Simulated assay, not measured.
Amino acid sequence: MIVPFFLIVNDIEICFHGMARSGNHAVIDWISSMYPGKVDHWNNVAKCPMKLGFRRKSFLIRSHENRSIAEMSTDPLERYHDLYFGKTGKRFNVLLVRDPFNLFASRLQQQLNQGFNPSSHGFIMGHPRYKYGAHEPEKFVGIWKEHAQEFLATTSYLKEPKIVINYNRWFLDQDYRQQIASALELQYSDRSINRVVGLDSAGAGSSFDSFNYSGKGSEMKVLERWKKMIDNANYRSLFEDEEVWMLSEQIFGHLPETECLRPEGMTIP
Rank of each mutant, 00 (worst) to 15 (best):
D173G: 08
P263E: 07
E240D: 14
I8F: 05
V196F: 03
S248T: 05
G115R: 11
I8Q: 10
R262T: 02
S201R: 13
N166T: 05
R79G: 10
N168C: 12
T267Q: 14
D200S: 14
T258W: 07
D99K: 01
V94S: 00
S189Y: 03
G253I: 08
Q114I: 02
K47S: 14
Y132D: 05
G23F: 00
F92N: 02
Y130T: 08
L83V: 12
F5Q: 01
C48S: 12
L152N: 10
S189V: 04
Q149R: 15
D209V: 06
L186Q: 04
I230A: 14
R55A: 14
K145N: 07
S237F: 00
E242I: 15
W226N: 03
L158I: 05
K145W: 07
Y84Q: 03
I251T: 04
M72H: 15
P118T: 07
I2S: 07
D190T: 06
G265F: 06
H64I: 06
K216I: 08
A70V: 12
I180T: 06
I124M: 09
G122R: 09
A26L: 02
M50Y: 11
Y235S: 11
D175E: 15
G142F: 04
I163Q: 03
V94H: 00
Y157N: 03
L186R: 02
L223A: 09
F208I: 07
V39K: 00
K216C: 13
P76E: 06
K57N: 10
W42Q: 07
